[in-house]
Structures are given as structure tokens and as C-alpha cells.
Amino acid sequence: MANNILEIKDLTIHYVTDQETVKAVNGISLQIAEGESLGLVGETGAGKTTTALGIMRLVPDPPGRVIGGEIIYKGEDLMKKSEHEMRSIRGHQISMIFQDPMTALNPVETVGYQIAEVIRLHQNLSKRDAELKAMEMMELVGIEGARAGEYPHQFSGGMKQRIVIAMALACDPSLLLADEPTTALDVTIQEQVLDLIDNLKKQFNTSMLLITHDLGIVAEVCDKVAIMYAGEIVEYGTLEHIYNNTSHPYTQGLFGSIPNFNSKTHRLKPIKGLMPDPANLPDGCVFADRCPHAKDECRSGKLVTKEIEPGHLVRCRLFE
């Protein structure tokens, strides 16, 4: 077993305002081993992005507040780092690819400058050398280095995302947090970008946390999967565990909601209802209201995460 590069223990993040407390992330635990890719899957509002921001210590405070938990990166707790130390980790050791390349880039600086900025910040290179390295990075993601002097609006969406990837990988990070990196892109471009991420990841042996709502993408690039619902990890395991021995009713519901690409199904089996308001979570199981197997006992008490087979964790009363 490879060493864990990242270990999250019992992380809880709330957004506290005068009116309400939004419980975005509630006591989640995750591990990512070296060179491994973990897919974090869930719907809008499940707390996926907040988790990633939590790892980067970028949760906006106020209103965001990390209530508790540990984030152990290479044996050290990031929660105990000073802001100054975090700055040297961000973009250097851990970097993030954001969902929307259109807003992640500065429109009034050239792309070459923006990539070089990261390099100069973290590596002792001259301006000239940093610019050369930036051009190298652009070539690596399949864009001519000569275009370093151009501005973001001169590139298409797919190319902008490549530039964001070049920026994220410029300092050779050991952990990459990719937040819906291809959601804004067309499928053929998505394929190109996923291919690129996959190759670079192998080349640099980077670990990755891939946040997505698309179970198809996870099957393609990830080794392990965590299914997130209303701030909790409801199921966690390897690809085989999640796809071939789908256990949590929510995960089953997700699979039932996707039209089958390989054969024609007459009816989809959607999950009824909606995700609970994270400012007003129910007692007991957060999924109980939508669950076809829910019993009275599901609606009270604290749930425990159970290991139903080695490495396959499920948080559901059916398995307790």
C-alpha cells in the first residue's frame, strides 16, 4: 500500500450567518494515496467544492468556518499551518483547477505572464527563465509557446482550460485538486482535456482529487470514488466497489438516473424529491426522505460508516 499523500479526518465546515448556519461539510474523512486519483461525486450543493477549498484553506471566512477536523498532507496538519506557510504550499505542492476557465484567468494579463507568475512565486527563477518555462508548459498542454503573448479572450474555452492546467502543473505539484475541470466544455474537447490530465498525471506521478457530477468521467480517470450527499460521504470505495457493488441507496439512485448509453431503456428511475436544505438538515440519515428503503429508525440517531468489505465504506442503516 502506497503512502497516503492526503488524509482528511472528520472535516466539518459550516457557513455561519446571522440568520442561519449552512452545514456544507459534515465530518468527512478521505484518503488519497500517492499517484492515486479519487473522484468526489455529488450533486450541486453537496459540499464538493467546499471540501476542496477546505483542503486549500481557502474557505471564505466569514461566513465560512472550519469547525473541526484534520487535513494531513504528507504527514503534516494543514490546519495548523500559518497563512504564510500555506501560501508557499498553494500552487506549489497543492494546486487547483477551477471549473470555469473563463473566470479563472485574468483578462488583462497575457497568458504567458499568468503562468510565469506562479513559477516566479515558487521557484527561484529570473523573469526571463520563468517566461521560458511558461512557454514550455504551454507546449506541454498542446498550445504553441509562441502564443504566450496573447490574452485569454484570444483562446477558445478548451484552450483556456489547458492554460489553467498548465498553470496548475507549472510547479510540479504532488496533489492536484480539479474542480469540475471539464464541465464547461464540449464532449470532444472534454475528451482531449481528460486525456491530457491523465497523461500528465502519469508523467509526474501526481495525485488527484477530481470533483465531478459525471460518473462516466470517474470511471475513465479515477481509482477510487467517494459519493457525497448533503455534506457527508455516503459511500466510498474503489471503482469496482462503487460500480459493481453499488450499495448506498443514493448511489443506486444516481446510476438509475443516467440514461443508458449502450441500450435503450424505456423509463429512467429518478430519485424522488430534492436534496435537503443544508441549513436545515434532518435528524438521522440525510437521505432518508428520498430513500426507497427508509424506515422509522433511519430518521433519528447518528449514523455510523460501516466497512462492508475491505476498503468499501457505506453510511447507511441498512448495513449497520
Binding site: S156, V187, E191, D214, G216, Y243
Partner: peptide, 25 residues
């Protein structure tokens, strides 16, 4: 062909031969 082969399928090992088409519109 390229468009349909680019669709990620939620099954393990569903990844068929990749027909990554180069370039953009």
C-alpha cells in the same frame, strides 16, 4: 463516431478505443 466515442460511460473498463479528434470547431 468521434462524438459518440468521446462520451464517458459510467461503467468500469467501458473505455473503448479512444478516437480523440484533434483541434476545435
Amino acid at each position: 463516431k468521434a462524438l459518440l466515442s468521446a462520451v464517458p460511460i459510467p461503467e468500469i473498463g467501458a473505455k473503448k478505443e479512444r478516437k480523440v479528434i484533434k483541434g476545435e470547431l
